[in-house]
Simulated assay, not measured.
Amino acid sequence: MAPRANWKGFLRLSLVTCPIALFPATSESEKISFNQINRKTGHRIRYLKVDADTGEEVSSDDIIKGYKVDTDSYLEVSKDELDNIALESTRTIEIDEFVPRSEIDDLYLVRPYYIVPDGKVGHDAYAVIRETIRSLDKVALARVVLTNREHVIALEARDKGLMGMLLRYPYEVRDPAEYFDDIQDVKITKDMLDLAKHIVEQKSGHFEPEKFEDHYEAALTELLNAKQKGMPVKAAKKQAPSNVVDLMDALKKSIAGGTRTPARAAPKPSKAAKKAPIKKRKAG
């Protein structure tokens, strides 16, 4: 089944407009997930919305939004008030400018989306916008409203389509000086740097994401398969990291150990293991 679009609207470059749809470019739904269950009954846990002071359950009709101004005071904000300030760009991604991709700090990157034509019309206009972006070797900065908030999105050509990357606002990016200022200035000798570079050369390769192994996911799969079959669960062997006493000695030992045969990668999770291993027991 094809995924559902997160957003549908229009992409506009000056007077050129076409209908489009946004789809998440990544997904975590394939990962193993767990439900919370009642140990005594085997039933799933359901969370209730309760008043923090009285402990009584509150119906959805009686729940409104509030902005905390101090310990016990909130500014109530109604749905109508929020609708009154809704942005006009709710259904249009308006391209504002073009900038070099290299100028966008990775700290500002949030989430990628695939942007495709919506329906049979508008493919010509879509292609014009896509090829314009591609020919400039830049990304297009635009605005899009998702979940009632306006976001900046960077558009770039990707294969036959467009990829949009949501960007953070400056106030969402923390100042690195708050974290890095206390790091000590240490003088590294040339011999140490040469040894470290040699280790890097031993481990150098190319970016091949298909070689990535999610070892925890594989361990979860093995655990669930064993439990389904009623087999004992083996505890994973964990090796505690050793304290570095002599940095130069550690670098030399790293080089000596760099030629060893790498450990066998953990097996990839099987499709069968993705099925929920826990079945609800009937209330009796």
Results as ranks from 00 to 15, higher is better:
204 S>G: 15
154 A>I: 06
189 T>N: 01
129 I>W: 12
180 F>I: 04
122 G>L: 07
161 G>Y: 13
129 I>E: 07
115 I>M: 15
89 S>N: 11
176 P>N: 02
209 P>S: 14
218 A>C: 03
179 Y>Q: 03
215 H>V: 13
76 E>S: 09
141 L>I: 08
201 E>K: 01
88 E>N: 11
213 E>Q: 06
210 E>N: 10
93 I>K: 01
145 V>T: 02
108 Y>D: 00
177 A>Q: 06
184 Q>R: 08
144 V>N: 07
111 R>Q: 09
116 V>H: 05
122 G>T: 05
115 I>L: 14
141 L>E: 03
200 V>P: 03
86 A>P: 05
153 I>K: 11
133 I>Y: 07
86 A>T: 07
93 I>R: 01
121 V>I: 04
108 Y>N: 01
91 R>C: 03
198 H>W: 07
136 L>I: 07
93 I>W: 02
211 K>N: 15
85 I>C: 12
188 I>D: 09
160 K>Y: 15
83 D>E: 05
187 K>R: 03
195 L>K: 13
148 N>R: 05
156 E>D: 09
196 A>N: 00
192 M>F: 10
123 H>F: 14
125 A>I: 04
81 E>S: 00
185 D>G: 00
209 P>A: 14
150 E>N: 03
205 G>M: 04
208 E>R: 13
124 D>T: 10
201 E>M: 01
140 A>E: 04
178 E>N: 11
178 E>R: 09
85 I>K: 07
83 D>A: 05
178 E>Q: 09
210 E>T: 10
207 F>A: 13
208 E>Q: 14
165 M>A: 04
76 E>G: 08
170 P>F: 14
214 D>K: 04
87 L>Y: 13
181 D>T: 08
163 M>Q: 09
89 S>E: 12
83 D>H: 07
123 H>G: 14
176 P>H: 01
109 L>F: 13
196 A>H: 01
124 D>I: 13
102 S>G: 10
205 G>W: 05
183 I>M: 04
132 T>Q: 08
125 A>Y: 03
179 Y>W: 05
194 D>A: 14
182 D>Y: 10
144 V>C: 10
135 S>F: 06
163 M>S: 11
194 D>P: 08
196 A>M: 02
179 Y>K: 01
113 Y>E: 05
98 F>A: 04
122 G>H: 06
73 S>H: 12
165 M>K: 00
178 E>V: 06
119 G>E: 03
93 I>P: 01
79 K>R: 05
202 Q>R: 15
83 D>G: 02
215 H>I: 11
95 I>K: 12
167 L>C: 06
97 E>V: 08
151 H>K: 11
118 D>R: 15
154 A>L: 12
186 V>R: 03
137 D>Q: 08
154 A>H: 09
202 Q>Y: 12
214 D>A: 03
157 A>L: 04
218 A>S: 08
135 S>W: 04
217 E>H: 02
169 Y>G: 08
161 G>P: 06
140 A>K: 06
77 V>C: 08
208 E>L: 14
173 V>D: 07
162 L>A: 07
131 E>D: 13
101 R>W: 04
156 E>N: 07
96 D>Q: 13
155 L>K: 08
185 D>I: 00
175 D>T: 12
81 E>C: 01
188 I>G: 10
196 A>P: 00
143 R>D: 15
160 K>G: 14
150 E>S: 07
140 A>L: 08
204 S>H: 15
196 A>D: 00
104 I>H: 02
129 I>H: 11
157 A>R: 01
121 V>C: 01
